[in-house]
Design a protein around this nucleic acid. Structure first.
Length: 197
DNA sequence: GCACGGATTTCC
DNA sequence: GAAATCCGTGCG
């Protein structure tokens, strides 16, 4: 069966804990029906969970603002934001409405229509033509969807601390990054600053 | 209003 | 090691 004809993950799936959804999205297909470029698709191989207002690495820790509002919204919708003035980051909103959390899509393996490398969260959105116009769009019924495909066994899921969130103190230590082990499209780990005691 | 810095990437 | 480059956030 053509994967683009399969049913996407349901809103119920996304209403779960981001620590369940993040590894659960590994092996799934991210499919963008692009208005000009047609079908663009990649297999998700790397994700990170951002979990609630307590999580200092999570944007929602700043409270509900114009920027963070999508994370407080209904699960199964996109949270797309601009970082460093030049890169768009794609997240899937999780947990029920009112409980802010999201799963950042950090790496995909090219499947269809992709003309450039996709490793790294800023590059994959570019390769798939994803930008802020898709912020708050429905990942179950919109032009950007995620559908189940491969099942990744637990043995093949590697967990590490999240990348680029050293400012978050103890929250930066949580092993909330999930990758398909040894997959070449997983972003490379930057050197981390040693923790100050 | 204005300064600051970021869930990144690339180049020196 | 630092620039590129925009805008949300916090503070005045």
């Amino acid at each position: 069966m053509n994967p683009s004809q399969r049913s996407p993950f349901s809103h119920r799936f996304y209403a779960d804990d981001p620590l369940v959804v993040a590894p659960g999205l590994l092996g799934a297909l991210l499919i963008h029906h692009h208005p000009e470029r047609g079908l663009l698709a990649g297999r998700i191989v790397e994700t990170e969970a951002y979990r609630g207002m307590e999580d200092k690495a999570c944007h929602a820790s700043k409270g509900i603002t114009k920027r963070t509002a999508p994370m407080f919204g209904p699960p199964g919708h996109a949270y797309v934001y601009l970082i460093y003035g030049m890169y768009e980051m794609l997240n899937a909103v999780t947990w029920p409405e009112g409980q802010p959390s999201a799963v950042l899509i950090r790496g995909v393996e090219p499947i269809a229509g992709i003309e450039r490398t996709t490793n790294g969260p800023g590059k994959l959105t570019r390769a798939l033509g994803i930008d802020r116009s898709l912020n708050e769009s429905d990942l179950v019924s919109g032009r950007l969807i995620i559908v189940p495909d491969q099942i990744i066994s637990k043995d093949c899921v590697e967990t590490t601390p999240r990348i680029g969130v050293d400012y978050a103190g103890e929250w930066a230590e949580k092993p909330w990054r999930f990758c398909v082990r040894a997959n070449p499209h997983v972003s490379k780990m930057p050197k981390r600053r040693s923790a100050t005691v």
